[in-house]
């Protein structure tokens, strides 16, 4: 079956849509700013309310939303190829559940607004995510090689354990903590400041740099570990790189935005249904697509019920889910084979 949409076209459309989406998102909110005024405000540094809202409230948040979306989608795409399973995502190697457990523990034991303030919670979440991935990796490792199936099962087992831990913490915590844990798990970017963005870049950038150039190697890996080796891919090194890159990228994303995972599953899948599986196009396209989806979800989360906020995790699922279903129904026959 020839797919109707060429890779290049979709990638270029996504790329062109990104700056437009960034501007639109920057203009929307409780204090609306007209789209055409944004460049002028930023360029001429017109001091005033608009400049301050734009520079100190909107821009850091929009920037972080795009980065988080990119990180989730890119690592989702890489892990799907590695596990040769279109339903894999960063949850499978334990990073999300580990981060979630650590964040819940932090809230329950130290309190959401402890002395360490704003920084304690994201740092704990990031460390928890990374530690869990390391555990999964070490346990799945057998005499130099890491069989993909074992890695998958170890991840599932640790996810269950982390889930039990979170349940226990929820059981032990009081009303206030319970509310904080629940909201953390639903995700959100409210209160993003520039320092938080710079801090999030520390793990995100190396993670993205590790994952982004892997297109051709991931294509070979999608055929099978043995086939990839036969095609001259150093499989063990590639696996390490994917796991490390995903752990850094998703760890950073989850630390900054809380429990959001749906983006990583659905964006690569959408691209595959539209165009095909060639990872050389899939990786850059999902990176941009993930940024768009998460930016859209975050913008909706802060504008739909303003001045209050909807948790963004609800919105990513609400926006991505039906679109995903529609694509599946449209391509039912292909999807059955995929």
């Amino acid at each position: 079956m020839t797919r109707a949409v060429p890779y290049k076209l979709v990638f270029l459309i996504l790329l062109a849509a990104l700056p437009i989406a960034l501007c639109v998102a920057a203009g929307m909110g409780a204090y609306p700013i007209a789209l055409f005024r944004i460049p002028a405000i930023l360029w001429d540094r017109i001091e005033g309310e608009g400049y301050r809202v734009l520079l100190y409230i909107r821009l850091p948040r929009i920037f972080l939303a795009a980065l988080v979306g990119t990180a989730l989608a890119l690592s989702g795409a890489a892990l799907q190829s590695m596990f040769r399973n279109p339903l894999a995502d960063s949850g499978l190697i334990g990073v999300s559940s580990g981060a979630s457990l650590a964040a819940s523990a932090w809230i329950a034991l130290a309190g959401a607004d402890s002395r360490l303030g704003l920084w304690g919670l994201p740092t704990a979440a990031f460390a928890g995510g990374l530690a869990t991935v390391w555990l999964v990796w070490r346990m799945a490792r057998t005499s130099g090689a890491t069989p993909t199936a074992t890695l998958l099962l170890t991840g599932i087992a640790l996810n269950a354990i982390a889930g039990a831990g979170i349940g226990l913490l929820i059981y032990c915590s009081d009303e206030e903590e319970l509310r904080s844990i629940t909201f953390w798990q639903l995700g959100g970017l409210n209160g993003t400041t520039w320092p938080l963005v710079w801090a999030a870049l520390i793990p995100l950038v190396p993670g993205l740099v590790l994952l982004a150039p892997l297109g051709r190697a991931l294509n070979a890996l999608a055929l099978g570990d043995r086939e990839a080796y036969h095609l001259g891919i150093p499989v063990a090194a590639l696996q390490r790189r994917i796991v490390l890159g995903s752990a850094l990228a998703v760890g950073g994303a989850v630390a900054a935005a809380g429990g959001v995972g749906f983006v990583g599953l659905v964006v690569p899948h959408m691209f595959r249904l539209l165009c095909g599986a060639d990872n050389r196009w899939l990786l850059p396209s999902t990176a941009v697509g993930g940024a768009l989806l998460f930016l859209g979800a975050d913008t909706a989360s802060r504008t739909l019920v303003q001045p209050a906020e909807l948790p963004v995790g609800i919105l990513t699922a609400l926006a991505g889910g039906p679109f995903f279903l529609w694509l599946l129904l449209r391509h039912k026959r292909e999807a059955l084979h995929a």
């Binding site: 279109p86 086939e227 599986a277």
Partner: peptide
């Protein structure tokens, strides 16, 4: 026996032979 779980086209699979 090979099974690909992703919708690569036959041409893309053949082109993978050029990876080395």
């Amino acid at each position: 026996d090979l099974s690909a779980s992703f919708p690569f086209t036959a041409y893309e699979v053949a082109l993978m032979g050029r990876i080395p």
